[in-house]
Simulated assay, not measured.
Amino acid sequence: MGHDISGYNKEGKEIAYARFSMGNYNATILYSLLGANNYYAGVSGSGGSSTFSIQQIEKALNDYNQLYKNGDSLSESDILTWDKKQILHFIQNCLLTAKIEGSVRVYFG
């Protein structure tokens, strides 16, 4: 069990991926940034998917930047640092696709 969150372009090609173990609470950060808490099913995603607009992904990126505006803290664990990076890369890749295609589809497994 775990959270496997994937972003897809209109052709169905995976363009973004984030993986969190079932006990990793940092998964909720990505769900929250995407405004997708209803897809969070505890130990994994619900298995549902949703299409996000450019504006929604831009908001997620802006919210991410606000959340981590003070940069990395020396007290942060390696897991949080890794998760912060994978969340950022996920959002950036989704935004790139959304800017090209107008939207991006995200699956929450």
Rank of each mutant, 00 (worst) to 15 (best):
residue 14 E to R: 05
residue 22 M to H: 14
residue 2 G to P: 15
residue 109 G to Q: 13
residue 56 Q to M: 04
residue 12 G to K: 02
residue 17 Y to I: 04
residue 106 V to T: 03
residue 56 Q to Y: 00
residue 21 S to H: 12
residue 6 S to V: 10
residue 22 M to N: 13
residue 66 Q to R: 14
residue 13 K to W: 01
residue 46 S to C: 01
residue 33 L to H: 05
residue 27 A to T: 06
residue 24 N to E: 14
residue 92 Q to F: 09
residue 23 G to E: 10
residue 45 G to S: 08
residue 88 L to E: 15
residue 105 R to L: 07
residue 52 F to E: 02
residue 92 Q to R: 13
residue 57 I to S: 05
residue 47 G to T: 09
residue 95 L to I: 10
residue 88 L to K: 15
residue 57 I to F: 01
residue 15 I to H: 00
residue 5 I to S: 04
residue 42 G to P: 03
residue 56 Q to D: 08
residue 24 N to L: 04
residue 26 N to F: 09
residue 34 L to P: 08
residue 53 S to I: 05
residue 22 M to R: 11
residue 3 H to Q: 06
residue 56 Q to V: 05
residue 104 V to W: 00
residue 18 A to N: 09
residue 41 A to Q: 06
residue 58 E to T: 12
residue 20 F to V: 07
residue 69 K to W: 07
residue 65 N to Q: 15
residue 6 S to W: 03
residue 43 V to P: 15
residue 5 I to W: 03
residue 4 D to R: 08
residue 84 K to S: 03
residue 109 G to V: 11
residue 109 G to A: 07
residue 8 Y to F: 14
residue 38 N to K: 08
residue 70 N to K: 14
residue 11 E to Q: 13
residue 82 W to V: 06
residue 92 Q to C: 04
residue 46 S to L: 02
residue 108 F to T: 11
residue 33 L to E: 08
residue 60 A to W: 08
residue 37 N to H: 06
residue 105 R to N: 12
residue 76 E to P: 15
residue 94 C to G: 09
residue 76 E to T: 05
residue 49 S to G: 11
residue 16 A to K: 01
residue 61 L to V: 15
residue 6 S to H: 08
residue 26 N to Q: 09
residue 67 L to C: 12
residue 10 K to A: 09
residue 86 Q to W: 04
residue 93 N to W: 08
residue 67 L to N: 14
residue 68 Y to P: 07
residue 61 L to P: 03
residue 52 F to Q: 00
residue 23 G to V: 06
residue 7 G to N: 05
residue 54 I to Q: 10
residue 57 I to V: 15
residue 73 S to D: 14
residue 85 K to E: 14
residue 103 S to L: 09
residue 6 S to Y: 10
residue 6 S to I: 09
